[in-house]
């Protein structure tokens, strides 16, 4: 694989990690979020600051960055999840703008200059290079998908699904809506934080603009296109959304228009996403593997 493809695949797997986190919030627990990039950014800034200011290695900084992002998710989620649907969407957009503004304006976070010279990840006594970094990101993506698969099978996952489907009925059978919405929010934020930490160490330079609202929109597009609430949907979505702008390079200036159109088309024609129950990819899979998964 050429260097360009490795770079592309690495960025896609990093975004897929964050998109899986968003899927836990939006797809599993049914809570809309249009501010996921904020948590991706918090993970990135935490890892960057720990790597540059505190001199921590990636491996020490990573759990701290993930825990910090999850903590901020808990802190911001508690008041946000009191509102529902469109109000929640607006609240999460607000979170995104505030977090971006803080990164952009507070000296501690590097201000408009961002943070540079973030050290490379080191493993086995040397810096991790292109292919190694891709393997590392894919490994983490595998862990995240496995965690999602585990969540779907456990009681907490069932509680999240029940909330997504019928909140009143769920409360009426003893499921705490607040607790499990928060749980989904914290897990989703933690995954965003993991993706962000990898992003910071991969790019080695980050600025507030990297985590602006458009990234939240494109992450939501990944989840919706791939298949909201499915296991592999966000990964497929991240791959498609990551690849398409490369294929249509000349149209790069119109990519927000493209995402929005794609989102609307998906909602109109494939509301469950490509891997959803009636999705295109799911139908093709069914044809390819007769008698396979439903």
């Amino acid at each position: 694989m050429g260097g360009y493809l490795v770079t592309l695949a690495t960025l896609i797997s990093i975004q897929a990690i964050a998109a899986c986190g968003l899927n836990v919030i939006v797809g599993y627990a049914g809570q809309i979020s249009l501010g996921h990039a904020a948590f991706f950014g918090i993970g990135a800034y935490a890892a960057a600051l720990l790597g540059t200011q505190a001199g921590f290695s990636f491996w020490t900084a990573l759990p701290l960055a993930v825990a910090l992002t999850a903590g901020v998710g808990l802190l911001l989620g508690a008041p946000s999840l009191r509102v529902r649907e469109d109000f929640l969407a607006i609240t999460t957009i607000g979170i995104n703008f505030i977090v971006e503004a803080v990164f952009n304006n507070v000296e501690f976070f590097g201000g408009a200059l961002g943070i540079g010279n973030i050290p490379r990840i080191r493993a086995f006594g040397g810096p991790v290079g292109g292919a190694g970094m891709l393997a590392l990101c894919l490994g983490f993506l595998g862990l995240v998908v496995a965690a999602c698969a585990g969540l779907v099978r456990c009681w907490a996952g069932l509680a999240c699904f029940a909330l997504r489907e019928e909140e009143t009925a769920a409360a009426g059978i003893g499921i705490s809506p607040v607790r499990f919405k928060l749980l989904a929010f914290v897990i989703g934020s933690a995954m965003a934080g993991l993706g962000g930490a990898l992003y910071a160490h991969y790019m080695r330079f980050i600025g507030a603009g990297d985590f602006a609202f458009p990234l939240s929109v494109s992450m939501l597009t990944m989840v919706v296109v791939g298949g909201i609430g499915t296991l592999w949907g966000p990964v497929l979505g991240a791959a498609l959304i990551g690849l398409l702008p490369e294929v249509f390079r000349p149209l790069i200036d119109y990519r927000m228009l493209f995402y929005t159109t794609l989102l609307l088309l998906m909602i109109r024609f494939q509301p469950g996403g490509l891997l959803g129950d009636e999705g295109l990819a799911r139908r093709l899979l069914r044809k390819a593997i007769p008698g396979g998964r439903r």
């Binding site: 699904f161 029940a162 489907e165 019928e166 009143t168 009925a169 059978i173």
Partner: peptide
């Protein structure tokens, strides 16, 4: 335990 109006089963489960 509540049996809600119009059942309110979890439709996709």
């Amino acid at each position: 335990r509540l049996v809600p109006e119009r059942a309110r089963v979890f439709p996709r489960l």
